[in-house]
Structures are given as C-alpha cells and as structure tokens.
Amino acid sequence: MARFHPLRVTAVDRLTDDSVALTFAVPPELREEYRHEPGQHLALRRTVDGAEIRRTYSICSPAPQPGDDGPRTLRVGVRMVEGGAFSAYALKEINVGDDLEVMTPAGRFTLRPAPGLYAAVVGGSGITPVLSIASTLLAREPAARFCLIRSDRTTASTMFLDEVADLKDRYPERLQLVTVLSREEQQAGLPSGRLGKERLTGLLPALLPVGEVAGWFLCGPFGLVQEAERALRGLGVARGRIHEEIFHVDAGSGSGPAAAAPAHSMVTARLDGRAGTWPVHEGETLLDTVLRNRPDAPYACKGGVCGTCRAFLVEGEVRMDRNFALEPEETEAGYVLACQSHPATEKVELDFDR
C-alpha cells in the first residue's frame, strides 16, 4: 500500500523561470519504502483551508542499485501550471528545511535496465521521468544505448538542461541527444517547429533503426504523445513496445459521453486486506465512494493520468470517463482507474491490493 511520510526538503533548485527541482532527504528507516524503479512518481500532499490537495511529480534522480539500502535522496521536477494550487506553492513558498507529505513511489512508466537500444520522445516537463530512466539504464547496463528526442519551446524554458548535457558528456557513445525547439531557431541541429505525426514519421527513421528499438517512452503533453504514438504505429512499431505517460491533459480530452449509473449501486472494495461495501451516491466516481469510507484509498491526480488509483475489477461493469494511465493489456486484464469509473451495474467489486 502507498503511504505518506513527512520528508525534509534539502534543496530547491531553480531550473527555469517557471520550474524548480525539489530534493528530499529519506531517513534510513524509510529508504526501503521509497525504493523506486526508474520512471516512477511521487504524490505530494498539503492541506489548504481544510481541503486536501495532492499533485504527482516524477522522480528525476536515478533509481537505487539493487541490493543497496534504498535511496538517500529523492528529486522531482515541478513546473508552474496556470492556476495550479500546488505548483505555485512549490515555486514561491517551499524552502530548504520544510517538511512535506510525500507518498511512497508509484507508477508503471518504467524500464528495467537490459541490453539493447531504447528511445524516448518527450516534451517540456516530460523529460523528468525519462531522465531517471536514461541515467539508470546507462549506468547499470554497459550494453544499452538510448536515443532522447526532446521538444521544448526555447532554450530558456528547457528543464534539466545541465543534467541532460552532463549525461551526454558521461556517455557520448551510448546517448544520442536530439533537441527540437518550437519557438527558437538553433545555430545547429534540427529546424524549429512542432513535432507532429508527419514530422516524426520522417525524422525517426533518419535518426535510428526504428524496428530495432526495444522500448519507446513517450512523455509530455497529450497532443505530443498522441502524435508520436501515431507516427510509431505508422512505422510498424508494435503497441507493446510503446510506453506512454501523459502530462497536461485538457479537461475535455478523452472524455466520453456521460451515462447515468444504475439506481442503488453498491461498491465493494478490498484495500490493505480489508473489505467493505457502500452505496454509490449520484454522480460519484467509485474512488469518491471508497474515500468517504476509507480515507486511506490510494489516489493522486484524480484526472486519469497517474494511475495511482488502479484497481482490479472483480465483479460487475464500470464506465471510465477517460484513461491516460493504463496500458491496453492492463484494461484487457480487468484493471480500471477508480477515479474515472462509474458503476454500470448495481453491484461492483474492486480490489486495490492486486
């Protein structure tokens, strides 16, 4: 089960005018709980005027080595979001020495280091989990190579610019770095402009042998990830080799038509070895119903993006408003996002422990 613990902020590093990196110290007794795979994320929690606010941020630091005692520090990148209740707090108010409530790592946008060629297409803050993935892979696996294609507006708005440059200097023969700026011309490299399906369809085969890539990692705004997936599928890449994590999804993106839930629906949920059954109120998601009775139910974004609230559908049927977190094989296996699920039958049973 994911749990929150207070962690001390040991560094607040300004990355760009609108982004920072936060570093947390992990005490020895919690290091095993915060052991993470490269690409996972943390949920940060604060309470404002009695209301709880949670936001999810990817870990950018390398994953700990197998067999060690876990991470001594954790680092995440935070970019300002217009009207963002947590990002504004992070950029303007968090200081070294503050204690923040941090959930233990979650997420399946991960890579277990292995020999081979891997590649990523990222936009904006989508670099954050991929920085962890690439740095961990190249450090652990001498027979691995990585191609990083990143899109940003301008050089000044590029997060982790120095960290990526250092990684390139450390592994010049095994890390291929391609930068595209949408609003600024570069002295060398690719012309400026947006990375869409047509451009990627021509660009990717010119950069690397597309069919030999063992895993593609797409991360960033919904539009970029969608266009990159379409380009890869058009180039014959199997869906199982494409891994996606979405940032900055518009409210209406992916939403299906609203459907009325059956009257008197009940949900049974198993969580941390205990089960309960409760009525679903009109308009509630299944996560909302569970949270009314089990405040310890796991969630972070409530937007269908992070996957923290993933649960196995044991019985009944549900309708998901949208899904940007689960892979097709996960939904086929019976997993749903509780934060986006509404009952389609009078009885629904979820298992958060599977």
Rank of each mutant, 00 (worst) to 15 (best):
F217A: 09
E349M: 15
M80S: 09
M320D: 01
L7G: 07
L91E: 04
K197E: 15
N323S: 05
C309R: 06
E37T: 15
C147P: 00
C147S: 01
P279F: 08
T308V: 08
F247Y: 13
G215S: 14
D288Y: 12
E93P: 03
Y335E: 06
L337F: 00
E332N: 06
E245D: 07
A238R: 12
A260Y: 09
G334I: 04
S135D: 02
T104N: 13
L337K: 00
R112D: 09
E327A: 15
A88F: 01
E327W: 11
R294P: 09
L291H: 12
S192Y: 06
R319K: 15
T345N: 12
R55A: 05
Y118H: 12
V180M: 00
D296Y: 14
G189N: 04
G70H: 08
E93M: 10
D98I: 10
R294N: 11
H36W: 10
F217V: 09
E163G: 07
G252V: 11
A143H: 12
V314R: 11
P328G: 06
P205S: 00
R72S: 14
H342N: 04
G116R: 11
M320E: 06
E327F: 13
R230L: 12
G283P: 08
R241V: 15
G234L: 12
H243A: 04
R199I: 04
M159G: 03
P28T: 10
C309G: 08
L44R: 07
G211R: 10
K347A: 12
G84Q: 05
E284M: 09
A120W: 01
V178R: 07
V12W: 01
I246M: 12
E315V: 13
K92Y: 13
L190S: 04
R354M: 07
D69S: 12
G252I: 14
A311P: 01
P113F: 09
G234K: 08
F109A: 02
D250M: 14
E141C: 11
K168F: 07
P115A: 11
